[in-house]
């Protein structure tokens, strides 16, 4: 099948076949990253603009490397949304950039839905590189690729996501992607960080690690933002770490082949102990490596000439 979308805004919109297509393509592109000359001319002459309104090192670098390995020209615009509120609007910024004829906007924004607003107003493709608490589709795709690399399948796996689910766009995208691909997702954390509505997305909710770790094939540990204490969501990082921090002791009853993942950046000693982060079960750096391949695949699928595809109609969004 071909991928006929203009934008990649979220995993929730994607069909299973589209996810499989992106993962297959990512696997074949991985080989480029292993060469000594890591560049192909596929997107030569294409322009990719990184529009990052929120600090990001890993995701922006990963998208930038991905675009450059495909020979696209890339430009980065970074800013904070607070200055945006005072000055030029997001749409004005985008329209000015669009006047310079870019092909792809890669957008990171603290406000949920910001990439959707842009996508409605531009002919260029928009890739959501993380919007507020909403979605982070390329992260979910690289997570699925990494899990598949290690387990050989996604169907039938038990994936436990631990931590601040409520504020996490990674958790939302992972829940959509993994459940579509047949995994059973369990969310673990205190009720202040997991509203019950997550069960309606197809995930199970479990408040105690000891109840979900023994069955887990994959444990995905989320970053705990230090501000959560001030928001009355947690008494202290110390107590969080004691109850929900993933340490070797907590993994005593885990499966021998469990893999540990983390979307980064890690708070070592809070949600994950250094022994686990650097230990034999950790695949955290594989995630980062796979991120480049997945983003190459996404850029390739969106930036290629849609006019050359047999059918350029956009599938209607399920919304």
């Amino acid at each position: 099948m071909s991928f006929k979308r203009k934008d990649l805004l979220g995993i929730r919109d994607l069909q299973v076949a589209e996810i499989e297509h992106i993962l297959d393509l990512s696997r074949s592109l991985k080989e480029i990253n292993a060469r000594s000359i890591k560049k192909v001319p596929t997107l030569r002459g294409k322009t990719v603009v990184h529009l990052f309104y929120e600090p990001s090192t890993r995701t922006r670098t990963s998208f930038d490397i991905a675009a450059k390995r495909l020979s696209a020209d890339t430009y980065s615009i970074t800013g904070s949304t607070s200055s945006m509120v005072k000055g030029e609007t997001l749409l004005d910024t985008m329209k000015n950039l669009e006047a310079m004829k870019p092909d792809v906007f890669v957008v990171r924004h603290s406000a949920s839905g910001a990439p959707h607003l842009l996508a409605q107003h531009t002919e260029a493709s928009v890739i959501n590189a993380g919007d507020g608490m909403h979605e982070h589709p390329s992260q979910a795709l690289l997570d699925m690729l990494t899990i598949h690399d290690h387990k050989g399948r996604l169907d039938g796996l038990n994936v436990v996501i631990v931590g601040d689910i409520y504020h996490s766009r990674v958790a939302r995208s992972d829940i959509y992607g993994l459940t579509k691909m047949g995994s059973q997702v369990t969310l673990c954390g205190p009720p202040t960080l997991i509203p019950p509505d997550f069960e309606l997305m197809g995930a199970r909710v479990c408040n105690h690690l000891k109840d979900c770790i023994p069955e887990a094939d994959v444990i995905m540990v989320l970053r705990l933002q230090k501000e959560r204490q001030q928001q009355m969501l947690l008494p202290s990082l110390r107590e969080y770490s004691i109850i929900y921090g993933i340490s070797p002791a907590k993994l005593k009853n885990a499966k021998d082949d469990v893999i540990i993942m983390h979307p980064g950046p890690m708070n070592r000693g809070v949600e994950i102990s250094p022994e686990v982060a650097d230990g034999p079960h950790s695949v955290i750096l594989d995630q980062v490596t796979n991120g480049v391949a997945v983003r190459m695949a996404v850029l390739y699928l969106l930036a290629q000439d849609r006019s050359s595809l047999p059918d350029i109609s956009r599938p209607s969004s399920p919304e």
Binding site: R12, S112, G113, D131, G132, M133, H134, E135, Y166, R169, R172, P195, D197, F198, L200, M201
Partner: peptide
């Protein structure tokens, strides 16, 4: 409104 839709969209409820 706080509920399944706000949770899904990542908008504070």
């Amino acid at each position: 409104n706080e509920g399944p839709v706000s949770t899904r969209l990542g908008l504070r409820g």
